[in-house]
Every structure is written in structure tokens, then in C-alpha cells.
Amino acid sequence: MPIPFRKMHGLGNDFVVIDARATPLSMTTRRAAALADRYTGIGCDQLIVLEPSDQADVRMRIFNTDGSEVEACGNASRAVGLLLADERGGSTRIETLGGLIHALATAEGVTVDMGVPRFDWKDIPLAYAMDTLHLPVGWEDLNGPVAVNVGNPHVIFFVPDADAIDLARLGPLIENDPLFPARINVNVASLIGPDHLRLHVWERGVGLTRACGTGACATAIGAMRRKLVGRTVRVDLPGGPLSIAWTADDRILMTGPAQTSFVGSFVDADYPA
């Protein structure tokens, strides 16, 4: 039978969203990768499957283009918050593998409470203990990153010019380094003004991306911890800007747009589990 989906994006970071709350759908690594393929499938950076939740309004499962299931996706959280806004009165509690988050849709966009960041080396996770504010490691010209877990793991390198870094080459080397047993998302950022950052992201299991919500959150938190910016910062990604705030009670608030591109359906048998 045809399975409906909605193609959505947040600043060009695009998703195939399947609502499986009423009709369960088996999703495997093989099926997720096939659906995400831009040549032979529907095509997306992440495949999102919505399921019933015992502890929130909805459970959001997130699969990268390689079919791996991951803990969090900030842009997808905004997309789901927008999708369910009318149903939930604008406010949606979302269960993810990275924890419970809350999305609030308004006329200005969607604000997502991403929870409290984690900094302990075991929470990133790293292969062994070290200071996550200044990791004593490097890869060629990228040295001394910050490590932050914002539902999923990130390292952030602060450089004079983020646009000058060949992240397409260095990203996969860092992502798959043995230091990161769960692999890692790689962020390269530069300060371009007061409380204003430019960011490029190599996303674990995806590659270079036009936007990464958790990457923007992690980068902002890393910059705040290093006293480079204040508690509210604008982060410019290739797809556009996000606003990130770190509240007095340590919660991360991310605000930005989300949109529906189109709706469609696929035949279950064409993408076997």
C-alpha cells in the first residue's frame, strides 16, 4: 500500500517525515538508506519516523543517509514542531534517543528547548578522559577543539576563517577517529562579529550539510564556554541563520524556520526492510 510522507527542510537541511503513529512502519538501516538516496529513493539528509510515545506527544526516530539511527536533530525537531503545531496547539513534546525536547511554533518560527548540554568526556563520548573545553588533539591545521553533547556528540574548532577549511576532506577523518567511539559531528566556526558566528558542519553519517541545528547549538555553547560570545548568539550556516540562547537554568533554546517542500507517497514493497 502507498505510504504517505512529507518532505520538509530547515534552512536547506532536508527530511523525509513519515507519520507512523497510527500505522506502524518497520524501519531498518537498509530501508532508511534506500529512501534517503537522492538518485534512487526520495532523497534527504535525514529520514524521520514519528511513532507513539508513552512520555511525550510523539516519538521521533532519526536516520541519517547511511541508514544509521542517531540521537538528535535540531532542524528536524523544528520541522516536527511545525508539522504538529495545529494538532498540539503550537506546543509539542518530542521524545528522542537523546532525551525529551520541547518545540513551540510561533509566527516568528519554531523554538526548540534542546535541553541541558553535557561536557563530561564519558558523555561525549571519548575513548579516554581529557578536558573537553580544550581537547589536546589535532588534525592538520585543526587543533584544540571543544567537545559538547547536545543530544548527539560534537567537536567544534574555532578558526580565523571557517570558509577556508577543507571540511569535505578533514570531516570524515575526524568523524571516524578512534578517539570517538560513537563517531562525531565536526564543526568549524569563526567569530564574524559580536555574538555572531559563521559555521560549517560535517554531519556524522551524512557529510557536509547546509544546516545542522544541533551543530549550531553545540558551537554556540562551545563559544560561550570559551568566553567568545554572550549567552545569546546568531549562528550563520550555508542555509541561513539560527538564534541560539543558553538560559540561566542551562537549557539551550534554538529558534529558526522550518518549511514543507512537498508531500507524496511511496510503495512499501519498493523499499523492503
Rank of each mutant, 00 (worst) to 15 (best):
K122Q: 15
L142F: 05
V112A: 05
T219V: 05
I165D: 08
A164W: 02
P181Y: 09
V206H: 02
G109P: 08
A127L: 08
H200A: 01
G215D: 09
V137H: 00
A147I: 03
W202N: 00
L142Q: 03
G205I: 06
H196R: 15
C212K: 09
C217P: 02
G151W: 04
G115Q: 10
H154P: 08
A223Y: 06
V137A: 04
G222H: 09
A216G: 07
V146D: 01
V186K: 01
S190Q: 08
W139T: 05
T214C: 10
A162D: 07
V186S: 02
L197S: 05
N149H: 13
D120S: 15
W202D: 02
E175Y: 00
W202K: 07
V146A: 14
H134E: 12
R118L: 14
I221L: 11
E108Y: 03
C212I: 11
H196T: 10
P117L: 08
P160M: 03
A189K: 02
C217V: 14
F158H: 11
R210L: 15
L191Q: 14
A168S: 15
G193M: 12
A218K: 09
A218F: 07
I221F: 10
I156K: 00
W202E: 04
A216W: 07
G171D: 06
D163Y: 06
N152C: 12
L208Q: 13
N185R: 02
I165H: 07
D161Y: 06
N143S: 10
I165P: 03
G193W: 10
I184H: 02
T209L: 08
P160C: 04
T111I: 07
R210Q: 15
A107I: 11
P181H: 12
I156H: 00
T219I: 09
G144R: 13
V110K: 04
W121D: 04
A164K: 14
H102M: 14
L133H: 06
V201A: 03
L133K: 04
D141I: 04
V146I: 07
L197A: 01
L208V: 01
L133I: 01
L126A: 01
I192M: 07
H134M: 03
I192G: 04
E203K: 02
A168G: 15
A127W: 00
F157A: 03
F180T: 07
L199P: 03
N176H: 15
A223F: 07
P136I: 06
F158N: 09
E108T: 13
A107P: 00
L179F: 06
T106W: 05
V146M: 04
F157Q: 04
N187L: 05
F158S: 11
G109W: 14
H154R: 07
P153W: 09
G171Q: 08
V148W: 07
A211D: 13
E175N: 10
I165T: 13
H134A: 14
W202F: 15
D131A: 07
P153C: 10
I184N: 00
A103M: 12
G171A: 11
P125G: 06
V137C: 03
P125E: 06
D123Q: 15
I165Q: 09
T219A: 15
W139Q: 08
L135V: 09
L142I: 06
I184V: 14
G207D: 09
P145V: 02
V201Y: 03
A164L: 12
